[in-house]
Amino acid sequence: GPIVLQTYRAIADYEKSSTTEMALKAGDMVDVVEKSENGWWFCQLKNKRGWVPAAYLEPMDGPDESEEQEPNYAGEVYKVQKSYTAVEEDELTLKEGDTIEVIHKLLDGWWVIRKDETTGYYPAMYLQKGGEVDT
């Protein structure tokens, strides 16, 4: 059958920072073609196509609760694939090779993770599944 694309509305203006992205104006209605786990969604708007941050989109058909996983407080072990230095207060700074636990996989690509006793946000695209918890 035909593929029915989900329509989302831009909640704020977005300036693109690379060629494969698509700029948005608040209120733009986009069709989502592909949802990447890392928080970039491939969208189309009229004759334009490109990647858009999921955090800038809200669903037209009510809340997206069905898609978002519940937090898993037990944690799921991941390894840090790429270092990142926190910019916001609620983010974590980690080094490549660190082992952490993912507690909540958010659709915007910023996952809640735990390292030792500290929790914070970290980019999902810099994490790789698997590994042993450091003790």
Binding site: I11, G39, Y56, G109, M125
Partner: peptide, 22 residues
């Protein structure tokens, strides 16, 4: 086939336009 997503993390949600809760 689509191009690969950008290699940088997406921006955090816009501060003054949080997703509305129902």
């Amino acid at each position: 086939t689509f191009k690969q997503p950008p290699s940088n993390p997406p921006p955090r949600p816009p501060p003054d336009a949080r997703k509305k809760q129902p």
